[in-house]
């Protein structure tokens, strides 16, 4: 028995997300009286792999194979399922992100293992196995019982704190064979921005809505974000109007984020917008309308014109950072 964690690296480095998963899996393994195993695919240096041990992995399976450079869902899920069976895994933990969402459902069918998708905390019960997750886009939560022997969980980002355990993880370099013809997904081009804080990774997000009035007013918002080391975001009307790029749209049909701090500036807070940001730990709202629904979701609020308030806010942050 063991708990297997699928980790992802970006150019050989793990993100905080992978450490959250290991921390989660290690706690879960304790509840199940077993140990956690991390799976790493791709070229990662030993010192980086050892970091997985710091958050509790007992064993790290490292696989390097050029045919795994591209994410082919069929090849990856077959590989992970094979490892899970060999290691007699009872729970597989993945992130509830693009890659986790691509693989977890396939693993569920392949292993006939019930899927708890987007869970936000440790299981509320082990026998029967019951997980807790957001449903109705954040308008409710549900306890879901997983009836199968093997379970698959995807963990909502930023919902579980890092726990340092310092296990002496054994690194096992494992050879796998993937036939050239097996990889059917063919990559033609990659377009990637670098040097920008990614919205889904950011701990602080500064987001603007229609209350920003015109696309030319974004200067102070961007300045505020850079002072705070934050990512910028926007509401749907703003991305639909083309004031800001589509990648910045947060909300039900856009990106769903859960930063520690979310600034909603000139955003009224329609249900669809809140669906994307309601898991933020602290929400600050600036809006002219004191009855705007965003203030019901917000922890802190300023009733005022975003255009007038923002420069003062930027000055206050500069003063803080200057200290």
């Amino acid at each position: 028995m063991s708990v297997l964690v699928f980790t992802e690296n970006w150019d050989g480095k793990f993100k905080k997300l992978s450490f959250e998963l290991i921390s989660y899996a290690t706690k879960l393994a304790e509840m199940l009286n077993t140990k956690s195993i991390a799976l790493s695919i791709g070229e990662v240096e030993k010192s980086e792999l050892e970091k997985l041990g710091k958050y509790g992995a007992h064993k790290i399976i490292s696989i390097i194979n050029k045919n795994l450079d591209i994410l082919d869902n069929q090849v990856y899920s077959q590989l992970i399922a094979d490892i899970a069976q060999k290691e007699e895994v009872t729970v597989i933990v993945l992130a509830n992100n693009n890659v986790g969402k691509a693989l977890a459902p396939r693993l569920s069918v392949r292993l006939k293992a019930g899927l708890g998708a987007g869970v936000t905390k440790l299981p509320v019960n082990i026998d029967p196995f019951v997980v807790y997750k957001k449903v109705y886009s954040g308008n409710a939560f549900a306890e879901v019982r997983i009836k199968s022997e093997i379970k698959i969980l995807t963990i909502a980002q930023n919902s579980f704190d890092l726990i340092e355990t310092y296990n002496h993880a054994e690194i096992v370099n494992t050879e796998v064979f993937v036939a050239d013809g097996q990889v059917k997904t063919q990559m033609l081009e990659v377009q990637k921005q670098t040097g920008k804080i990614l919205l889904t990774d950011a701990e602080i997000v500064v987001s603007g809505g229609r209350g920003m009035k015109t696309p030319d007013n974004w200067g102070p918002l961007i300045e505020m974000a850079s002072l705070l080391g934050a990512a910028t975001a926007c509401s749907r009307p703003v991305s639909d109007e083309g004031w800001r790029p589509h990648e910045e749209h947060t909300g039900q049909t856009g990106k769903i984020i859960s930063p520690n701090l979310y600034f909603a500036i000139g955003i009224s807070g329609a249900t669809q917008h809140l669906a994307g940001v309601s898991s933020s730990k602290v929400i600050v709202a600036i809006n002219t309308d004191k009855d705007a629904p965003i203030f019901e979701a917000a922890n802190y609020g300023i009733v005022g014109d975003a255009i007038k308030v923002l420069p003062k806010l930027v000055d206050a942050i500069k003063e803080l950072k200057g200290k």
């Binding site: 899920s77 691509a102 569920s108 069918v109 998708a117 997750k133 957001k134 109705y136 039900q252």
Partner: peptide
């Protein structure tokens, strides 16, 4: 938008 499971498509392909 009800169960937010992101599951059916991937499961279907595996089936």
């Amino acid at each position: 938008s009800d169960y937010n499971g992101s599951s059916v498509g991937g499961m279907l392909s595996e089936f």
